[in-house]
Amino acid sequence: MAESTTSTSSIPSVMKAAQQSNCGEIRNVLTLRDDVPVPRKLSAKQILVRVHAASINPVDWKLLNGNLSLVIHPSFPHIPGADVAGVVVDIGSGVKRFQIGDKVYGNLGVYAGGYAEYACGNESMFALKPKNLTMEEAAAVPLACETSYQALFNKISPPVGAGSKIFICGGSTATGFFAIQLAKAVGAQVATTCSQRNFQLLKKLGYTITENKDEINNDQQQQLLVIDYNEKDFGQELKGQNYDVVYDCVGGEQQWISAQQILKQGGQFITIVGDDTKSVVSLKSIATIGSSIINRKFWSVFSSTHHGYILHFLSQTPEDLDDIRTNYIETDKVKPLIDTVYDWRKDGVEALHLLYEKSKSGKAQGKLILKIADEE
């Protein structure tokens, strides 16, 4: 841990922060203010972080739009933004894992508070920042990488490991490109889908891209089989290839249909999206999701193929972020990919609006970052 370098007396009473006034269109409900109170009253297990950088995830704009309002009800005005990286400037009386001056990264959860100069959260939401990443790079990691880490190593039984064959739907998504690297790091054979325009993005990970399954040779760890989903259906292309796992980062019923053609008997399908790619939670969608899961669970037991179906939601644990840091990022086995860094000090509220709009467009090639302060 770092030595204490910051006096709590230097923490201001107000800060610059994003403010969401309601659910709706981004430019109608999201503003930037410089008179928002700094959260100074910490509970025993909370830490206060001077935020240097934050990132956006699809859940952020879905929350802003109100897509998830049936299950998540933020109070307004609300500070959005879950993924952050920064420096600890104050700690609660019962905090054991950190001290003032520590550089950390973490996920503040659905009720967030990250798009601000200061953010507080339970110490369990954070881990020490990887030493080999900048603040902007570290902010790109928590939610997306931890989601894939848990999907591959905690939810799948047995976990993905040496010799596993895994197919990833949506390799150019943030969860997808982290999953590719995590699976490769433990010795798995990996194939994925993405559009032709994103092939170059996956090449940045350092793999040799091939579009032909017959070209995979003994050097599988440096090769990545990529199927352009606009041109081919992966189920038809890899039918009967006996994959152990299909990890779906895209959503839609077709992923499940295609997966059943390539999974081995007893193989597992795990999705972080489900059938509804719009992710608008309504009573109807909840009923539909529930019935489809029950149906698939039934057939996973009683059909001849026994394909498992798992709908995966992230459960935050600091141990996972610590393991990601020490065994994957600081060993250079996993790295974040960044598309654009926005800076509200230069562009004001427009930086926030563009951050959300590009994320919502689905055209980002890598993570989108909000820079809030310079490195110390």
Rank of each mutant, 00 (worst) to 15 (best):
Ser148Trp: 05
Phe234Asp: 03
Asn212Gly: 01
Ser195Trp: 06
Gly235Phe: 12
Ser157Tyr: 11
Lys239His: 12
Asp233Ala: 14
Asn198Glu: 04
Val186Lys: 10
Thr175Met: 09
Gln221Arg: 15
Val226Phe: 00
Val245Asp: 09
Gly170Thr: 04
Lys165Tyr: 07
Ala139Val: 07
Cys194Phe: 07
Tyr243Met: 06
Lys213Tyr: 11
Leu201Val: 13
Cys145Pro: 07
Lys155Glu: 09
Asn242Phe: 06
Gln221Ser: 14
Ser195Asp: 11
Ile227Gly: 01
Arg197Pro: 05
Lys204Gly: 01
Lys155Met: 04
Lys232Phe: 14
Lys165Ser: 04
Asp214Met: 11
Glu146Lys: 08
Asn154Ser: 15
Leu224Ala: 01
Leu201Asn: 08
Thr208Arg: 13
Phe234Ile: 04
Leu238Lys: 02
Asp233Pro: 03
Pro158Thr: 03
Tyr247Asn: 00
Phe167Thr: 00
Glu137Ser: 06
Ser164Arg: 09
Gly161Gln: 13
Asp228Gln: 09
Asn198His: 14
Ala162Ile: 05
Leu224Asp: 01
Ala183Glu: 07
Thr147Tyr: 12
Arg197Lys: 15
Ser157Cys: 11
Ser172Gln: 05
Glu146Cys: 08
Val226Pro: 00
Tyr243Arg: 09
Ile156Arg: 06
Glu237Ile: 00
Ile180Cys: 01
Asp219Asn: 15
Cys194Pro: 11
Glu231His: 12
Ala179Glu: 04
Asp219Thr: 09
Asp233Ile: 06
Asn198Thr: 03
Ile156Lys: 02
Ala174Lys: 10
Lys239Gln: 15
Ser172Val: 02
Ile216Glu: 05
Thr193Met: 09
Asp233His: 14
Leu205Asp: 00
Val226Met: 00
Glu146Ile: 12
Gly163Trp: 11
Glu231Val: 14
Gly176Leu: 11
Leu202Gln: 05
Val141His: 05
Ala179Ser: 14
Asn217Cys: 10
Gln223Trp: 12
Glu211Gly: 14
Lys204Tyr: 03
Met135Tyr: 15
Lys239Trp: 05
Asp219Cys: 05
